[in-house]
Amino acid sequence: MATLRRSMLFVPGNNPALVKDAQIYGSDSIIFDLEDSVAPAEKDAARLLVWSSLRSTDYGRVEKVVRVNGIDTPWFREDVEAMVRAGIEVIRLPKTEGPADIARLEELVGALERTAGRPSGSVRLMAALEGPLAILNAYEIATSSKRLVAIALSAEDFVTSMRTTRSSEGVELAEARGRIVLAARAAGVMAIDTVFTDVADSEGFLREARLAKQLGFDGKSVITPAQIPLLHGVFAPTKEELRRARRVIAAAAEAKVRGLGVISLDGKMIDRPIIDRAQGLVDLARASGMRVEDKE
């Protein structure tokens, strides 16, 4: 099954009550945060806490991501070293401005993989785009490394740089979102939408999540577990989509049994990409808690 990143849950890195079992909420990924949620004086404490938890906690099937401190901070190298050694799966680099930033991170990660005895290339990267220059460099960033699996919009700093504020309609983010999705699709990586910070406003969150899905984003970062089921609901396929996908798969299976080279459904030809997409949709339906095996 393909990796899903519908929901990436931020967890403050210096809070043991939250770090200890953030996987229970069923997000696709957990992002242990060493950056904005941790005060400068506690950077060392948060790093050790996340390191220690990763060493001894079974986080199950959830993808383990860390947001390290920015490349120009005094904590960056130590963060990356601790996390690579702790067995992190993905490092999210904040404030990525261009491909050179990813190259620096990649070099450090590669060296650490060797000293820590981890398979080469096992640590994946993710870039958070937080400023106008980063957005303009989106495609270059998205294609800067084989390790890179996703680019993400981080809107709070972005709107400040753009001398505007966030609105419920999100017009100020329209261009950035469009460019990120375009770049991600062109580069073959995932596109992750920004957080929605008003935790009490579930209607507003749903509106924004539907917009992100419609634009083509693969998922969203979230800051509270309550947003996870809402998000998965938005990203779930419709029953009609699921029905159609299952018919495609059934037609392909039947063609295989009968040794047919050409697969058709309702008089139309079906090619490999359509079948792959149908399988992906069935997987997504299953992950969304839909009944996939039901007979029609």
Binding site: I24, Y25, T224, P225, A226, P229
Partner: peptide, 9 residues
């Protein structure tokens, strides 16, 4: 509490 909500859901 998200944990209690999770259990309830």
């Amino acid at each position: 509490d998200p944990r209690e909500l999770l259990i309830a859901r």
